[in-house]
């Protein structure tokens, strides 16, 4: 086994184990951290495939920004895992066998017979000096400009949706509006009641 194959197996093993732990970890913070580990290993696999830009982007964007935000959210929410896990054992008798069956079938189909080296020959090595970052940039802004724009529209919709669902004017806030304070009139605040004089 050459060094690349060895690295591939190391990365893949850790990736699969980390992904398993994401679903099985009891503590949600641990689950998020295992997801970060999974991302690191996936990015290692991409590096082996010479997709340097994607590998770095995965770490910068997902690990650096998305997952950190995710971690904050998970830490802020008080998630009751016991409640989430209720019903797990009740449904296992049905879900478990189906899952096992699907995994067996998928392994049968996606085996080396369909995706082995003779079915999928390795691509010709790229010439030295070809930058795949540059190639990616050129492709995105020329051939893929339409999906690129659509993706930006999707992000805009996400922004609008977040504002539409979450931004609300609070009615119970305690701040005072000076303009309204100045504009106040006497008869809005004081009511003069005429009543007969009373003796003690």
């Amino acid at each position: 086994m050459d060094i690349k194959t060895t690295l591939f197996y190391i990365f893949s093993t850790i990736l699969v184990l980390a992904a398993l732990r994401v679903v099985t970890a009891r503590n949600p913070v641990h689950a998020v951290l295992f997801l970060v580990l999974a991302f690191f290993n996936a990015s290692g696999l991409w590096l082996l495939l010479q997709a340097e830009f994607l590998a770095i982007a995965l770490i910068v964007v997902y690990v650096g920004a998305v997952m950190v935000l995710f971690l904050f959210v998970v830490m802020m929410l008080d998630i009751n895992l016991e409640r989430l896990r209720r019903g797990f054992w009740n449904n296992l008798w049905l879900g478990g066998p189906i899952a096992v069956l699907m995994v067996v079938e998928m392994v049968a189909v996606l085996s080396a017979r369909s995706f082995g080296l003779d079915a999928m020959p390795a691509p010709a090595p790229t010439a030295a000096g070809v930058s795949n970052t540059k190639a990616l940039g050129v492709a995105i802004y020329t051939d893929y400009v339409y999906p690129f724009e659509l993706a930006s529209v999707i992000l805009l919709v996400a922004l609008i949706a977040a504002v539409a669902i979450n931004l609300r004017q609070r009615r119970d806030h305690k701040s005072l509006d000076p303009a309204r304070q100045i504009a106040v009139r006497r008869n809005e605040r004081v009511r003069i009641v005429s009543m007969p004089v009373e003796k003690e």
């Binding site: 339409y146 999906p147 993706a151 999707i154 919709v157 949706a161 539409a164 669902i165 979450n166 609300r168």
Partner: peptide
């Protein structure tokens, strides 16, 4: 396939938000 998927996501994301708009 990319535009099928992106169109679908654009529709779906707008619909998720619309369903939740009565917050």
């Amino acid at each position: 396939f990319v535009t099928v998927y992106l169109g679908l996501e654009l529709l779906a994301l707008s619909m998720y938000a619309l369903v939740a708009i009565d917050r």
